[in-house]
Design a protein around this nucleic acid. Structure first.
Lengths: 161, 161
DNA sequence: TATTGTTATACTCTATAACTATA
DNA sequence: TATAGTTATAGAGTATAACAATA
């Protein structure tokens, strides 16, 4: 509110019709942020989707692989390979679920918890850098708006236990 | 402002730490919108990146293939295949640039202009549907915020000539 | 019969290197 | 020498189908 920006969302030096579409901007912002995060995490031997899995497992919900794949919108078969890599990296453990022996219960290891924290700090920095063009109040406003927009779009099933 | 939303960006039924990251929300919003648009455009024999190319060519800037690839952040070699398809579909024409015979000048055909309009309406509908969860004032606010965030991130070179 | 995890496989997308024609 | 466009090709990512173990 304090900022006087009567000008439209048309940035310096670039004028083509897509730039005035919220959808295109949303898409672009998301992919830029993803690429930046991926680049920073790579330096830690980490990847963005590893980070997503670690973050999802932080809440002790007894998630299975397919729970995870639904939650993160990844194919179950790619989740197999993903968890393979993360288990080999020592960040995640597979235990059989005693009450349904088809499923695993995935658990963070101590090393996984450390990696999560380290990656979290890196991703924080990337996000803050990206969002620094806008005052803090607007950053919070943006987060709230996005939360509202996505409220009905989260995956239905997050089966625990 | 009229809406009383003291609640954080934590949607109904889903609580895990990623959901409170603006970066994750941005990413998710962008990819959902992209998938929705792709699905709708498919029914017209259209694709989202065709639409991007058509929209970029609407402004008569004498863009070459590499201009386009820089503008849309696509590899020059994928741009070749892309323009091949669109030329075969009759939406785009390649003409040699007389002042630099290495380059093409890409032009919309009449059919391409029609396809652009039709696709534009479809994408409008998708965006409006996605954004309908939020009042019009906030939609405009969102667009302005995203525009500010991206102002410094647009590709440097948009050679016209 | 349905579901979880798994493998093998095919398909799409993207990136790399080498070539041509122009500059 | 450098650049625009092109081709061939390799690599990553993703999706499909079939299977074993369990429910």
């Amino acid at each position: 509110m304090a900022k006087a920006t009567p000008t439209p969302a048309q940035p310096a030096g670039l004028d083509f019709p897509l730039v005035r579409r919220t959808g295109y901007l949303l898409n672009k912002a998301g992919s830029i942020l993803m690429e930046d995060a991926e680049r920073v995490l790579m330096a830690q031997g980490m990847r963005l989707r590893y980070f997503y899995v670690l973050a999802a497992l932080e809440s002790d919900l007894s998630l299975s692989q397919q729970d995870l794949s639904r939650l993160l919108h990844l194919d179950p078969t790619t989740m197999v390979a993903l968890i393979d890599e993360m288990e080999q990296g020592g960040h995640v453990e597979r235990r059989r679920n005693p009450s349904d022996r088809r499923r695993y219960i995935l658990r963070l290891t101590d090393s996984g918890r450390e990696a999560l924290e380290r990656a979290g700090r890196a991703v924080d920095a990337v996000e803050q850098d990206f969002l620094s063009a806008v005052p803090a109040q607007d950053r919070e406003r943006l987060r709230a708006l996005l939360g509202d927009l996505l409220a009905d779009r989260w995956p239905r099933v997050i089966a625990c236990e």
